[in-house]
């Protein structure tokens, strides 16, 4: 190749690279403006000092981060671990995890049911699944409250029949929060699962039965491995918003059963400690990130060895 030809190729490559950047610019701008930018602001705030009436004072401080992990006694300034924060984070993780599992348990049969309907009926079922999305989440949460509160439908019914004599306390429990979150986030699990199941070649299931697999064997060794991308996507879509859930624990958990979302809100509201709120938010983002990394890594690993 002559030198000038080489130059020309190089030029073309450069132009190619430039074109690619130009073409992806709108997406990049959107991502930066809507996602990276706000996150950076939150990170910045977490390193500032709290203002007296909310807001921040523009001076560097690690107090926010310090407060995530430790509390200072109001009277003698002794430092101790911030137990409340730890337990709220831990509770949130447990609840979000349980919600994900319940969504999977209820969502999988639902998605399977839809995927096995005749093609022209499937859109109707999908449409039904998305109906709850049409209503504001707050309203849906209040609807759940109507079902489970002490004078609610379930308790009234059970008492009428005579199975129980006093109402079961369901409101303001972890059960209520989990129920609410499962209900609210279920479609987020069903839709990606359906997308995976719909692509599943049902002849593979026949092949499984033909080769002596039981129903469970077919489910475990054929269907689940093949729809794993949908399971992963659905779990992430449920786990992430469940972990940072705010409305559901606020309404169904009452003031006592806080989740991280409420804790953060508290710092920006009554607490008037924006840096602490920002630091807690960043902590949450980091936890989600690590959880996702761990989960995706593990899920794809077991994809290669679960059937050795």
């Amino acid at each position: 190749m002559t030198l000038s030809a080489q130059d020309a190729t190089e030029q073309r490559q450069k132009k190619h690279v430039r074109d690619r950047w130009l073409l992806s610019a709108p997406a990049l701008i959107l991502i930066i403006a809507a996602s990276v930018g706000p996150l950076l602001i939150v990170v910045l705030y977490s390193f500032l000092a709290p203002g007296s009436y909310g807001d921040v004072k523009w001076e560097f401080s690690t107090e926010g981060w310090f407060n995530v992990l430790f509390t200072r006694d109001i009277f003698d300034d002794t430092v101790s671990l911030a137990d409340a924060h730890f337990s709220i984070f831990w509770r949130s993780i447990k609840l979000a995890f349980a919600t994900t599992v319940f969504c999977l348990i209820f969502g999988f049969p639902t998605a399977y049911f839809i995927a096995t309907r005749a093609p022209h009926n499937r859109s109707l079922w999908l449409f039904l699944i998305t109906i709850p999305f049409w209503t504001n989440m707050l309203i849906r949460t209040f609807a759940i409250q109507e079902v489970i509160r002490s004078e609610g439908i379930i308790n009234t019914l059970l008492m009428k029949i005579g199975i129980i004599s006093a109402p079961i306390q369901m409101m303001f429990t972890d059960f209520a929060i989990m129920l609410g979150m499962t209900y609210v986030f279920l479609p987020l699990m069903v839709l990606p699962l359906y997308a995976s199941l719909e692509k599943l070649d049902f002849r593979l299931i026949e092949a499984g039965y033909d080769l002596y697999a039981s129903r469970f064997g077919v489910l475990w060794r054929i269907i689940i491995p093949l729809v794993k991308p949908g399971i992963i996507a659905g779990s992430i879509l449920v786990f992430v918003p469940a972990l940072s859930s705010y409305v559901v624990p606020r309404v169904l958990g009452g003031g006592k059963n806080l989740m991280v979302g409420n804790l953060i809100e508290l710092q920006f509201g009554q607490g008037r400690n924006w840096p602490l709120g920002a630091a807690l938010s960043v902590t949450l983002v980091i936890i989600v990130l690590f959880a996702m990394l761990y989960y995706v890594r593990n899920a794809s690993k077991s994809g290669g060895s679960a059937h050795g």
Binding site: R203, L204, A207, D210, P225, L226
Partner: peptide, 24 residues
């Protein structure tokens, strides 16, 4: 049921399990 019959099928499109190796 199909899994109770000592009969196996070679499917028209093969229907091999894509997530498994040849030996599996």
């Amino acid at each position: 049921l199909p899994n109770q019959r000592p009969v196996n099928t070679v499917f028209q499109n093969y229907a091999l399990f894509p997530h498994l190796t040849v030996a599996e």
